[in-house]
Design a protein around this nucleic acid. Structure first.
Length: 474
RNA sequence: GACCCCUUCGUCUAGAGGUUAGGACACCACUCUUUCAAGGUGGAGACACGGGUUCAAUUCCCGUAGGGGUCACCA
């Protein structure tokens, strides 16, 4: 039997890290087994489901590179089928009408809780004569759940878990307005879509018992379940807004590469020996549910960034170029010109190793398009102001010669400047640091010769002139 | 509160009834070096606690503590 998995988010908000990892695991499991990965939107709560949320999910999955198979299933479009199943169950005696008012249920729960019990529906309409139904109340249809014995699920991650059936109540299948609830929809859709493996967050664990009971009542076989541990924030609490970025879209903006995100998410709750850097092809080959942990993991931004730095270094320049041009052009229009692209491309190989995010990479290249004097770091400022007369003379002489240098390439520049420093009997740093400050406005940058090549002779000379270095050499 | 789950360095994790308890991120030092990174080398850092079982337990069992999840006509 071929594997069919699904990612089934409710489109009520952004696609967050936990959802993204659930999708990743489903996708990997399907790909590993040569199966199918479906996307299903659980939008049975039409009030809370929004087009924006649907777009966020679709965009998030696309950005992550988790392509789904077949059409997106929208649960709301399958209402008829869900209701039909509920009515069949009702006719067969597996469900019944309940005429409780919301207030009545509220009281029931409050009393149960006050008595120190779980707040469950007490089944008061389970065997009551429908003739006693109060007038003017639209009933809900409840599942006639087994009241004795126990239910066991064989979870692929959490192992066998058994629960006493008294811990579960008769859940609502069809609301008073006739619309299906999540619990019914999931069961019918998982069955109809032929889902073989339901891989989802641990928060659904207790649902698995209810759903298993419903599957059996319907005479169907439930899918294999795999409840993966939740992702927590750095303080160990459930991931939420206060933990900073939780939506995958935010990570794209922060300059995280999809490959890094996939790798980071993969290693949260899953491992393959001591392996840390695991690309997607390798992940597909290795991924399996038996290596998934059972405890929740905390999300670590530092590790993501470290991984991201690795994937940036591994990325082809041509790929990074497109992203960088966009990021830089937003602030410096010149970045989007031919000369701008040339400058970025020239420095990219050097700059790649110095950034953990694309934002940082763009920041590190921004000096190519602005006057260094406008954004001088304090250290760079001190560097230029504290030059001895001797050093000033050296720099001036060097700058003057640079104007006339025959070749303007990295090797030639390095050879020339080194020879110059040696000739004057001074360390290269004495020359390189002031040059760096003048050319980049910073005390730290990619290699100074690569910087000069990226800027070009004309711009290099102009910048040296602008801070008075060239003048002192004339 | 009831039910269920979890517990190895700060974090993510490997691990086996007998190991100097391994790796990664972060941290520190050294190295490389024109700066900053990257790279290399090294360092510090963990089996929650208490009982069992056993020749031997961090590993198996039971408790305790701590953490988490679920208890809707939400999903």
């Amino acid at each position: 039997m071929s594997v069919v998995t699904r990612f089934a988010p409710s489109p009520t908000g952004m696609l967050h890290l936990g959802g993204a990892r659930t999708a990743l695991f489903n996708w990997l499991y399907a790909r590993h087994h040569g199966g199918t990965f479906r996307l299903r939107l659980e939008d049975t709560d039409r009030k809370r489901s929004t087009p924006e949320a649907i777009a966020a999910i679709v965009n998030g999955l696309t950005w992550l590179g988790l392509e789904w198979d077949g059409e997106i299933v929208r649960q709301s479009e399958r209402r008829q089928r869900h209701a039909e199943v509920a009515h069949e169950l009702l006719a067969a005696g597996g469900a019944y009408r309940c005429y409780c008012t919301p207030e009545e249920l509220e009281t029931m729960r409050a009393e149960a809780r006050a008595a120190g019990l779980a707040a469950l529906y007490d089944g008061r309409w389970r065997d009551r004569d429908p003739a006693e139904a109060p007038p003017g109340i639209d009933p809900v249809i409840r599942f006639r759940a087994p009241q004795e014995g126990e239910t066991t699920i064989s979870d692929l991650v959490q192992r066998d878990i058994t629960i006493d059936n008294t811990a579960l109540d008769d859940m609502v299948l069809l609301r008073a307005d006739g619309t299906p609830t999540y619990m019914l929809s999931v069961v019918v859709d998982d069955h109809d879509m032929g889902i073989t493996h339901a891989i989802r967050g641990d928060d659904h664990l207790t649902n698995a018992f209810r759903q298993t009971q419903l599957f059996r009542a319907l005479g169907w076989e439930p899918p294999a379940y795999a409840h993966i541990p939740l992702i927590h924030g750095s303080d160990g609490a459930k991931l939420s807004k206060r933990h900073g970025a939780v939506a995958v879209g935010a990570y794209a903006e922060l300059g995280i590469l999809p490959a890094a995100m996939r790798n980071a998410l993969l290693r949260l709750g899953w491992s393959h020996g001591d392996d840390e850097i695991i690309d997607t092809a390798q992940a597909i080959a290795w991924f399996d549910l038996d290596a998934v942990n059972r405890g929740a993991a905390r999300f670590d931004m530092e590790k993501l960034q470290s991984l991201n730095g690795h994937y940036i270094r591994e990325s082809a320049d041509s790929v990074l170029l497109i992203d960088l041009e966009q990021r830089l052009a937003a602030r410096h229009p010149a970045a989007a010109t031919d000369e701008g692209r040339r400058r970025i491309a020239a420095l990219l190989p050097e700059a790649k190793a110095r950034a953990k995010t694309l934002v940082e990479l763009a920041d590190n290249l921004a000096f190519l398009f602005r006057d260094p004097r406008d954004a001088m770091t304090p250290k760079a400022h001190r560097l230029l102001n504290g030059l001895s007369l001797e050093t000033q003379a050296h720099l001036g002489a060097l700058a003057y010669m640079l104007e006339e240098l025959a070749e303007w390439d990295e090797a030639e520049l390095e050879r020339f400047v080194r020879a110059f420093a040696e000739g004057e009997g001074i360390g290269l740093g004495k020359i390189a640091q002031p040059l760096r400050a003048a050319l980049t406005g910073s005390h730290a940058s990619p290699g100074i010769f690569a910087v000069m090549v990226a800027l070009g002779r004309e711009e290099t000379v102009a910048r040296l002139n602008a801070v008075g270095i060239l003048a002192s050499g004339r």
